[in-house]
Structure formats: structure tokens, C-alpha cells
Simulated scan of single mutants.
Amino acid sequence: MSGMHYGLLVLGDEMKWNKLVQTIVPMVYWLIVAVALTLYTGWRVKRTYEIPMQELAKATSKVAHGDFSVYIPPINTADKTDYLDVMIMDFNKMVEELGSIETLKTDFFSNVSHEIKTPLAVIQSNAELLQKDDIPEEQKKECTETILGATKRLTGLITNILKLSKLEKQAINPEPKRYDICAQLCECALQFENVWEEKDIEFEADLEDRAYIEADEELMAIVWTNLLSNAVKFTPQGGKITLTENSDNERVIISVSDSGCGMDEQTMKHIFDKFYQGDTSHSTEGNGLGLALVHKIMQISDGTVSVKSSPDKGSVFTVTLSAAKL
């Protein structure tokens, strides 16, 4: 542009323009340049910032009204990403997460409603039978036992929901302390002794004399109780359950294996989801929250839980925790 200005001055001298013309021509030239630059800058700002921000505002309004299917494409390619692209990508990620949370919330309420409705229906039907005058004493006893079983299941469901809710909201703060994990495993296992005998299950425990971890003892008791309870539930009559524990200076590994029905790959992907029950034949014996509790407790205890299984070959749940420092 400076070259053009100089060229106009040279042209004016060669053409012998008067001084007024030589003054006006450069001024008109720079006026045209200024207008062009202003228009171009305005167009670039509108295209690069104003329009994308308007799209972002519209998308935000849709999200605020409950539409989580919104997606804003980035303005530039990956190699030319600027801060506005980063903001848009973060917005898309946020909307995706909000959509997932909304889906989980909907599924949660749906599952809770279903799980509560089932025992309530059992209680109602048996209570109606008890109201009849001609019902035999034996049937009365059966109805009473059924009602008690349904109320226990309902109580267990509500208790687990509250525990899981508190854990997810971090309302329960773990209180780690150093204790013998082997002794705790023995205590938890002995709670199921009567069930082993009823189902003629062979129970084998391979534990060290002692091994110490630093964790919340009450929360860890929930883990072992749920894993052993599942093993007992899915092990058939005359089956086998094995509880093993081994440790080194850095970690303690506990495994609970059973000879039950096992799981396929699809079931294992969702086994730690809330209310998920892969084997519907045992759905009346639980509420699908036990393993979700186990998984959450492991997360806040800096431990891991994994599962290996195959159909008709049983399952092995493995918990890994850090060993307590000497």
C-alpha cells in the first residue's frame, strides 16, 4: 500500500498534476484502503467469531431446555485449532457428558421404580390373601414368610441405594486404618457357612497367616460380603467356591472364584453398572447394586476390581489393594 502511495506521487509529478490533485488522489486512495480494510475486518470478525458465538449461544439455549443432542462442528481443522475451537470442543464434550448423566438418571429412576414395585406387589398380593377368612394356617405361614422376604429385599435395596448415593456424593469419607485383611476375610466367609451346607458347596480358602492393608475396614467388609454372596448365589448345588489371598511388599491380591454359570463378554462389560443383572434367573435374589458398590468402594480406596469369566465355567473376581507400609 505504501508502494501504491509512492507510485501515485510519482505519477502526479510525471502527469504534472496541480498540487491540489496530488493531495486529493492519495487521500482518496487511503480512504478506499481504509474502507476496504474495515469491511474485510468486519467480515472476518463476523465469520470467525460472531457467527460461531451466535451458534454457541443457540446451542447453549437448547441444552438449557434439555436438548443434549446438540453438536457444534469446530471452525478450523485440527492443525489450525485456536482457542475458540478448544472452547467449542469442550462444549461438545460437556453436552455429551450431560447427556450421559441424563440417560443414567432416567435409567436409575426406571430401575429403582421397577425394583421397588416388585417386592411391593408381592407384599400386596400376600397381604390380600391373609385378609381372607378361610385361608389355612399353613398358607398363612407361607404368606407371612413371603412378606418378610419381600420386606428384607426392599430394605436391602434401599440400604444399598443410600450407601451408593453417599459414596458417589462423597458423603462417606473413608477412614483408613491398618488391619489384618486375612482375619476380616475369615469373618466374612463364615457368615455364609449355613448357606454352603444347605447347597452342599465345597468351600476352599487359601489365605496367608496375616496380611495388612490400610483401608476403611467397614467399607472393605461390604466388598467381601458382596463378592462372597454373589459366589454363593450363582454356584449350583454341589459346586465349589475358592477364596484366595496372597501378598508381597507392595500389594495384596484377593480372588473369589465360583463354579457357577459364568458370563459372556457382553455381560462382563456391564457387570459393575447399577441395577445390571446378567443372569435374570437369579434376579429375585438381588437388586443389581452389590457389584456397583464394590466398584465404587474400590475407586475411593485406590484399589481395583476385575472379573474373568466364560459361560458355564464360573467366574473369578480379583481385588487388588496396596499393602500397608511396615
Rank of each mutant, 00 (worst) to 15 (best):
P74Q: 08
A78Y: 09
E137S: 09
R178C: 05
R44M: 10
L148R: 14
I181T: 03
T244R: 14
D107F: 02
L84Y: 01
E168M: 11
D79M: 08
V294P: 00
S229A: 15
T318V: 14
E245M: 14
L207D: 07
T155K: 13
T235R: 01
K296L: 03
H295C: 12
S257T: 07
V28N: 08
N246I: 02
G303L: 00
L37V: 14
L321V: 04
A36V: 12
E14T: 11
D67W: 06
S301Y: 01
G42E: 05
G262C: 04
N111Q: 13
Q184V: 13
N173E: 14
H282Q: 15
D79F: 09
A121I: 07
S69Q: 14
D180L: 05
S283V: 06
S125C: 06
D312R: 15
A324V: 14
F192A: 02
K46A: 11
T144Q: 14
D133C: 02
N173G: 06
I222S: 02
I253P: 00
V316P: 00
L219M: 09
L129V: 09
F203P: 01
L293E: 00
S247L: 02
L289Y: 02
Q299E: 15
V305N: 00
V252Y: 01
L293C: 12
C186Q: 13
K16F: 01
L164H: 02
N230S: 09
H114Q: 10
R210P: 03
K163W: 09
H5M: 06
A231W: 00
S255V: 08
E197M: 15
F108M: 07
I253Y: 00
P311F: 10
N230C: 08
H114K: 11
